[in-house]
Nucleic acid binder design. Structure first.
Lengths: 217, 217
DNA sequence: GTCTATAGAAGGATAGAC
DNA sequence: GTCTATCCTTCTATAGAC
């Protein structure tokens, strides 16, 4: 469910074995990632992880010194990998109002669909649930996800003369808040019905409409 | 931390003893509520609850048939008790724009401060963390909290001629989304610094400003 | 209802052979 | 590194006396 390929780019996250390409290690990470994402920290046992990865518990402990470390490693890497899409914002060229609405709807749709991915929701749930016992995960999630995404969005908004944003950081935060209204909480709680494309588009359109009425120059 | 007084108003939530005034039962509920809120479901043992409530485990099991049931009872009651403030909205009298801004800042401040209470944050974390294994909790939380609050807010907005809200439910949802932008995620993750009164007022003022620019008639 | 004491299972973690 | 087998703790839940 959650990818782990960033491990090779973050060697400091590797304990026990330093060989990122160890197949057993990869199997453990894949199995543990899926189990933690699906059931949470407390409901997953090291036995279950070893079974799912088809290795012995001793092998598991040869690669990860404890359940805590295994969990922290997985969630930390997932936070570093799970980056909100904002790199498709057009380079500082000034846009007229119609194009601006178009761009905001496009980027807003991408962002909201990203928020609603099973992977994103699972990370969000894990971090919220365990941030009390693993404060560094809350920090990693927050700095790498919401803060980084907001900053890129804010910089772009500030560069658009068709927008009147006295405080770009606040405006970016509000745009994200508008996107999260409605569907997002329901999806986080796993409530039916699952959001479909039409519902997502409706939320995005409403968010962009409100945002532009408030912030057009 | 979380109150349990609604138990007496919800007798169907009581298993084992039907005497809501049993002091031991009350002690168990208080202790378990505090522990679950502080550490989450998995990190709290029935031993710890019995110790904190100063009763034996046998007594605990005489009142609650299992840990699952105890947890579900506590969180369910907490969801029913934790109601967003919206009853201080002025009765349908039409307001001018200045008064409207005043009322929105007042109610917005109350709502955001409510969201940021330790109690509200704890319930939110518990429900998100355990909604996979206890789907009925996600439903109870959602219907009694966000849905009910949004409906009351939407009805009030629809009654205000100084507002132009084509879809009151969407507008109410967006107002809540604007309030949640900024501080709320940080608080949910338990990140420092804890929100102070000035920060809360700033978020509320920004939310009301954006909302009114978008929705004033 | 309440206690002490304990059963029985599952948990995290390790020893020792290969 | 990897396995089998096991240790020790902790957990949920209950039996039986009062």
């Amino acid at each position: 469910m959650l990818a782990v390929s960033a491990l090779s780019r973050h060697p400091q996250m590797m304990a026990g074995s330093e060989d990122a390409e160890s197949p057993k290690r990869r199997a453990i990470l894949n199995a543990a990632t899926e189990l933690f994402a699906a059931r949470g920290y407390g409901a997953v046992s090291m036995d279950a992880i070893a079974r799912a990865a088809d290795v012995s518990k001793a092998t598991l402990y040869a690669h990860f010194e404890s359940k805590d470390r295994l969990f922290a490693t997985i969630v930390h890497v997932a936070c570093l990998e799970n980056i909100m899409p904002a790199d498709d914002l057009p380079e500082d060229g000034a846009l007229d109002m119609a194009s601006l609405g178009e761009v905001l709807r496009t980027i807003g749709g991408r962002i909201l669909r990203f928020f609603l991915l099973d992977r994103s929701l699972a990370i969000h749930r894990l971090v919220i649930a365990e941030s009390v016992r693993f404060p560094e995960l809350g920090r990693a999630f927050y700095d790498n996800g919401p803060v980084a995404g907001r900053q890129r969005l804010a910089a772009w908004m500030a560069s658009q003369p068709a927008l009147d944003v006295p405080d770009p950081e606040v405006a970016a935060e509000q745009f994200l808040g508008l996107l999260r209204s409605g569907l997002y909480l329901r999806a986080t709680l796993g409530l039916a019905p699952a959001p479909d494309a039409a519902a997502i588009e409706a939320v995005v359109a409403a968010a962009v409409g409100t945002f532009l009425r408030a912030y057009r120059a």
